[in-house]
Design a protein around this nucleic acid. Structure first.
Lengths: 330, 330
DNA sequence: TTGTAAGCGTTATCAG
DNA sequence: CTGATAACGCTTACAA
């Protein structure tokens, strides 16, 4: 391994001069700098990150923690982060699983963005307490070293429910995420509130887990129970994410082609996955910019790291109408 | 920041004793070890990764380099890697973009798995030459420090083309990936070979780039040119990945509902994306285990790092029949 | 069994 | 403008 020592010897200068030259310090003559740079590249010198960060106490790397690598959802989000971070000279790495939590306290990364419900809030708080900088996208956590960038779930759920009500539906269902999910809780609270305000509508809760399979199972169950069927009052379901809504659609299209979406069953999701836009019929859903979410999260983290003031930011949402929601009065 | 020095002082021992104790070295009495551990946890001690890896010359982290974070494709692959690596005590990080290439030469990671055509082979070779351990999934690269884990593209393409031929199709099209793509080249070579052997069939090449949009554009163009339509001899297209095939389907379903898949146009993809299994009609495609691919890649890298012998491994593929391919004799 | 001390590759302070 | 030199936090001979 070639180190600055080798360069120093080869160039006939001291190691400190080499270090200065490599870091572009103007204290060193252009001439010697040039010579040193030449030697360095000739020897294929690459700085050692461990040594550098041991000294500098920073790595210029930001970690994003996700529940899993399953992707479909994360692409734009990560892209948004990367764009912001790379401008600031930071690299982004994606981590998943309990094992990799160590990267934060061990100072392998300068800060973290959390989108992983399985990451314990206590653990996060303890990191914040030690001085680590965090941005959380999936919970509320107040601390000087933590910033939250949350979706406007309340508005999203209200938009979805109001859309269903506006189309004349009164027998509403809400399919939730996993019990612990912050987003799911917020959406449920808002949906309940809107329905209660109306008075003549009902909201039944179906437990889900944000995965497609739970949507499929729920659809099967609802058909068995006669809630969904080609006859009778159609149900209107607000799935708290698109994945579950898609699961429902697929189950029905495959097993019950007589049940028509937008007629016998009305469905709206949340997230506006790219996939949703290709569905036949088009899935109604709640949209927001995932790229922007990522970008803002990254910006907030940069501010936290630079010691700048950070305001609370919120990600706004909008309604996407779709053919999966029809009018109740046929 | 609390270091072993602080622990040493607090516990009334020397720093080397602390280091030994923390590493479970039996040289230290159980008694003192216990005391040291107690002090360490009381002070919330966390080792500094930079210092440790500066000394040990390893980080116990493996990096995977992907072209982008767009996901849909990578979930299982990464999961397969993670499972293998975590057993061996390694962490996995996902990196994307030129910037993050530095992690390898700077020794932030102990090895890398490459699935990123934009990563220059020369660059990879130079890393290998410096002693870094690599596994490549997207090219051929022979070096003592590099192992390849490649798809059996030849078999896959042959399966696809033979399937189309078997169903009576003779007017075949192949839609490729981007020019540089190793997989695409291999698939094209194999497809061509199979068609040539038959004699009475033709194979026309359509240039694509593995993205959905190129599938959409190609479909639009083929319709305009009259190659695809509700009349005349139906075309049979082998898209070199599912994403492009799905793009074609979506374009046609949306803009030309009179063109029926499996009747006026026959389509087979490659990858068996989860999404493909939910398509209506079901997309014919070539399947392989992405998780296994990841797992094998990780295993090979572990062997490389441990200095064990590594054999060349290959990922086998199989045909998934689907409704998008019908018989030519209606 | 424990302590001393050198060194990993950098950076940065201070003299020259 | 350049060069010694002391850290950074940890591991590991070697000495006691």
């Amino acid at each position: 391994m070639v180190s600055i020592k080798d360069i120093a010897r080869q160039a006939g200068v001291s190691i400190s001069t080499v270090s200065y030259a490599l870091n572009g310090n103007p204290k060193v003559t252009e001439e010697t700098t040039a010579r040193i740079l030449a030697v360095a590249s000739e020897l294929n010198y690459v700085p050692n990150a461990a040594a550098r960060s041991l000294k500098r106490r920073e790595t210029k790397i930001i970690g994003v923690f996700l529940t899993d690598f399953s992707g479909a959802f994360y692409g734009d989000l990560l892209q948004g982060m990367k764009e912001v971070l790379s401008v600031k000279g930071y690299d982004l790495i994606v981590c998943s699983g309990k094992q990799s939590h160590r990267m934060l306290p061990e100072r392998l990364i300068d800060g973290a963005i959390i989108l992983d419900e399985t990451f314990d809030s206590k653990e996060l708080a303890s990191y914040a307490e030690r001085g680590h900088k965090l941005v959380v996208l999936d919970r509320e956590l107040k601390h000087a070293n933590v910033n939250q960038v949350l979706l406007d779930n309340k508005a999203g759920a209200a938009l979805a429910v109001e859309y269903l009500l506006e189309r004349g539906h009164r027998k509403l269902y809400a399919m939730t995420g996993p019990r612990g999910s912050f987003d799911s809780k917020q959406r449920l609270a808002a949906a309940t509130q809107v329905v209660e305000r109306v008075g003549d509508a009902s909201l039944t809760v179906i437990e889900g887990d944000f995965n497609k399979s739970s949507g499929e199972h729920a659809a099967a169950k609802l058909v068995m129970e006669g809630v969904i069927g080609p006859h009778g009052e159609p149900a209107a379901i607000f799935c708290f994410n698109d994945e579950m809504a898609i699961g429902m659609c697929h189950y029905l299209q495959r097993n019950h082609p007589d049940i028509v979406l937008g007629k016998h069953l009305h469905l709206i999701g949340f997230d506006n996955l790219e996939l949703a836009s290709f569905m036949q019929p088009r899935l109604a859903t709640i949209d927001y910019s995932k790229r922007k979410w990522g970008a803002i999260a990254a910006e907030q983290l940069m501010k936290l790291i630079c010691g700048q003031e950070v305001e609370q930011e919120r990600i706004y949402v909008s309604l996407i109408r779709g053919e999966t929601v029809g009018s109740a009065t046929l």
